[in-house]
Amino acid sequence: MALLVRVLRNQTSISQWVPVCSQLVSVSPTQRQWSSTSQWLQKNQSRVCLGSEQTVGADTAQNRKYHNTSKLLTTQDFPQPVEEKVGPFTKIIEAMGFTGPLKYSKWKIKIAALRMYTSCVEKTDFEEFFLRCQMPDTFNSWFLITLLHVWMCLVRMKQEGRTGKYMCRIIVHFMWEDVEQRGRVMGVNSYILKKNMALMTNNFYAAILGYDEGILSDDHGLAAALWRTFFNQKCEDPRQLELLVEYVRKQMQYLDSMNGEDLLLTGEVRWRPLVEKNPQSILKPHAPTYNDEGL
């Protein structure tokens, strides 16, 4: 399987990882991003959080950013994401199982979905996962890693309303097409492939539900979900489990920070590396209070 991954990787160029600090600085503020930040601020005002370790440079950058955030919030009040109004005709269509008109062309959404799925299978360092998590180099391991990344994309796109839901469906469709094609390329007998596809489908549903419970739970829940599904209850080293929990937490936050409209139209997703020296959060856990009185 690693050989197939290597062949695929050689055919396409891989964008290099951008350091967190420069990424933080270069991210241009957009309406949705500020809105998301303000939502988070409102949610966590009454919660006490642990401080995170930061380098001096990152600390300065983040302090500047949050000062700007406070300034923007005082001068302009960004509206919360408004639920899309749907007419009765569209409701009837969707109740029958079809997709009503969306704010973008369906073909644009399909192309973006294909590009997003491609990011899951081609911009992910599978060999790093095989090595760090001590996974055997098998088709099933490839499927588990791909599934984890597809799930993270689905969670993010679900935040984008009806258009995001449609995109989720297309991403899943492309995933199964790809799984079937890879099985054929490996020369698996079609009858056996069909049986295994049924098993993988059930694993897919169980994994989606398990990861959903994990991301909404504390680190206990996420660790347990990863241990059951990703490691198939065979992880004996808590350090590997910790590595995966941190990877999922930081990746989800990173995806949340990406602009929703850009994701809907381009599907371009970037992944932070699995092993990162001194990884930093791009959102400060507890917003500091700036005293502007007297200025």
């Binding site: 995170s52 969670v155 679900k158 909404l216 941190e246 989800m252 936050q253």
Partner: peptide, 11 residues
């Protein structure tokens, strides 16, 4: 705590 999310969402 280290990686807070703007919105706690699932799929």
């Amino acid at each position: 705590h280290k990686y807070p999310r703007p919105r706690d969402t699932s799929f």
